[in-house]
């Protein structure tokens, strides 16, 4: 039984024994993980463990040298980054990566760049504004001039504008005030309840495990632990290393 009360479906994302390099650095040394349809899966790990590289391997920005990535039943290992979003994977990247000199509205429109259904895009934008009323207030403000929390909302909203089947979230709580962190996680749950599967990279392990169905622990480019979120929360190693308990 999953956290959102529905039973998870078939695998939507299957990462199999992926090796990825950053220049000459062997960043991922055989990572395998699965996200099932409708799940929130979290990826935990220290800085430099390879969490962001895992996401960049999935979204096509860092092509793996070895291994395979399957999404929605098709191999996407060598599909270029700009095609991946068309297949149904959108991302709110590390550091948000908004277009700083574009307005909030323009940023959201960029999220729907590969779509052509104008009226539905407008509806989706209204939905994003319902989810993040703050963005509606700031709709004509340049994204680069907003606070970190507002930028994070805009980055998540922009990813949603692609109508993804799978949402990759990289450190959505990084640098945010605690009140914002709570709100962001509420919204992540809400997005998931509406049917989007989520792969969540998060340094706030407690919040992540509360929201997730399952989790993986990544250490220096390898998956060292995989379990459902509730078990990971009680796992002694995880408690020591990621939940800050002694």
């Amino acid at each position: 039984m999953s956290a959102n009360g529905r039973s998870p479906g078939a695998p939507i994302l299957e990462v199999g024994d992926v090796h990825t390099y950053y220049g000459s650095i062997h960043a991922l040394k055989g990572v395998s993980l699965t996200v099932n349809d409708g799940e929130i899966v979290t990826l935990l790990g220290a800085n430099g463990a390879g969490k962001t590289t895992t996401l960049r391997s999935i979204n096509g920005l860092n092509r793996p040298r070895q291994g395979s990535i399957r999404f929605d039943g098709r191999d996407i290992t060598t599909v270029p980054a700009h095609e991946i979003v068309r297949r149904g994977i959108a991302q709110s990247p590390e550091g948000r990566r908004l277009f700083p000199r574009m307005t909030v509205t323009e940023n959201l429109e960029m999220g729907a760049f590969q779509r052509h259904d104008r009226s539905e895009i407008r509806e989706d934008m209204e939905r994003v504004f319902e989810l993040f009323p703050r963005l509606q207030e700031r709709r004509s403000q340049k994204a680069g001039t907003m606070s970190g929390g507002e930028q994070q909302m805009c980055a998540i909203g922009r990813a949603l504008m692609a109508r993804p089947k799978l949402l990759l979230l990289d450190e959505p709580s990084l640098g945010l005030a605690p009140i914002f962190v709570e709100r962001i996680f509420d919204i992540i749950r809400q997005i998931n309840e509406q049917g989007t599967s989520i792969l969540l990279v998060e340094q706030n392990a407690l919040m992540a495990l509360d929201a997730a169905d399952r989790g993986y622990v990544l250490e220096t480019g390898r998956i060292v632990l995989a379990d459902d979120a509730a078990s990971l929360k009680t796992n002694e190693e995880v408690r020591k290393t990621y939940l800050g308990e002694t």
Binding site: L61, P80, E83, R86, L98, P100, F113
Partner: peptide, 24 residues
């Protein structure tokens, strides 16, 4: 235009543009 938006997005952040579906 759509092409113009792609140009501005690519100028501001190439990786972000790529994951929006823009052929950089």
């Amino acid at each position: 235009t759509r092409q113009g938006k792609a140009m501005r997005a690519t100028a501001q952040d190439k990786d972000a543009a790529a994951i929006m579906g823009i052929n950089v």
